[in-house]
Design a protein around this nucleic acid. Structure first.
Lengths: 223, 223
DNA sequence: GACCGAAACGAACGTTCGTACTATTTTAGC
DNA sequence: GCTAAAATAGTACGAACGTTCGTTTCGGTC
């Protein structure tokens, strides 16, 4: 570790720039393996945390060599960032895919909330919401991984606020409702549901959250 | 690690039973050092997580030897459990000490909520709420540490529900309010505030939570 | 001041971590 | 089918991990 800059070099230099676009359906074998690594890494990290995620353990589960796996990323930090990005794709897919089909305004906002709770119920990540866990794990660990998580969470809250504003614009939601305030409250209920459901094994947690969301949104609904 | 049972033995056999009462003001030197170790351990674990807490690092910060520190606990797991217990004492102190002075019913319930937000503002734990972090870190890691955290969180939610019921018994809060439901909502707002405040650096997070708490409680208040 | 258990120490153990270098196999394009 | 490139494996390294051991220092009691 005398020269950390050397981590990004040789055959995996291209992978150290996270901005580089990757094909949705990978043509090269390397991309396919990389994707399968990340799939497993996301699950593992949701269970053990991003720090608890270990290259040796991951390689073992995938029946490949540590060094072969390592070469895909060049450093553990790059693996963590790639894992966060992969989790984000899954997250967006699960939360927004169905919701975007709903008509804009109140129905879409409600669909997002329901998708979130359903995403916990369906155990999209085996260890509970990946980002709730990652947020708490990295909230006081500065560095690129922290920054990435933070950006994604800012985006998520931003998307929630936008959905709220859209419902106002459509005339479905009271204009005096404060989007950042409401987004904060909804997100709190989601994280709280995840906490109660997974740590406390409160089987009614999702129903409680649903009820709270419904009554809060209905209270702001017009008509 | 061939015989994990051997961890609890010899001079620290007494420390392996967490139920053993410890004096509030320690007479023996050993107890005093132990307390100072735990004080630092709690802070460190709130920043780095309970797994990220390492004996070597802790010993270094306290300027004592790894082995000397280790002897106080007998295993890392025992250290983690002791750290959780120490954090719980601090938590209870900070949340309930002031609130218990308020008259039972609505004032006390509100005082608990305000104490919680103030506990985040005053940075009682440098890395944010210890138990929010620990809950997410251990929600899918079975074992004694998980069990201890879970029990404490159950106790916390239970205390919240009791405060709500008390407010109903005093006639301050509508009887149709559902204590588990309301406790879930309040706790969600607390954890959500911690998340927004620490990870997203949302300086208004605590005000948002306060506003949400106030409007929810006032909506259920009688008179 | 001598004694003795408690407390702290320093050195070492075996293991696992992330990472580096090199060699071998597999793949993709001609 | 050949060949260069890409992907994977193999091996080794230093550092840090939790833990053990034998020894030394400390603190309270006669």
């Amino acid at each position: 570790m005398a020269d950390p800059g050397r981590a990004a070099k040789a055959s995996h230099a291209r992978q150290t720039t996270a901005s580089r676009k990757r094909p949705a359906v990978p043509a090269l074998k390397g991309e396919r393996t990389r994707q399968s690594i990340l799939d497993r890494a996301v699950d593992l990290a949701s269970l053990e945390g991003l720090e608890g995620l270990t290259i040796g353990r991951l390689a073992e589960e995938l029946k490949m060599s540590k060094s072969g796996l390592f070469a895909h990323f060049g450093s553990k930090e790059e693996l963590q960032i790639a894992t966060v990005d992969a989790a984000s794709q899954r997250y967006i897919q699960e939360i927004f895919q169905a919701a975007i089909l709903q008509p804009r305004g109140f129905p879409r906002l409600l669909a997002i909330c329901e998708a979130w709770l359903s995403y916990i119920r369906r155990r999209v990540f085996p260890g509970g919401c990946f980002f709730a866990a990652a947020s708490f794990e990295f909230d006081s660990r500065p560095g690129p991984v922290h920054d990435r998580i933070r950006k994604l969470m800012d985006d998520w809250i931003g998307a929630l606020e936008r959905a709220i504003r859209m419902a106002q614009d459509e005339g479905h939601l009271r204009p005096e409702a404060d989007p950042p305030q409401l987004a904060f409250e909804l997100n709190s209920l989601f994280f709280g549901a995840n906490f109660a459901y997974h740590l406390r094994h409160d089987k009614q947690a999702l129903e409680k959250a649903q009820k709270a969301v419904d009554s809060r949104l209905n209270g702001l609904r017009v008509g």
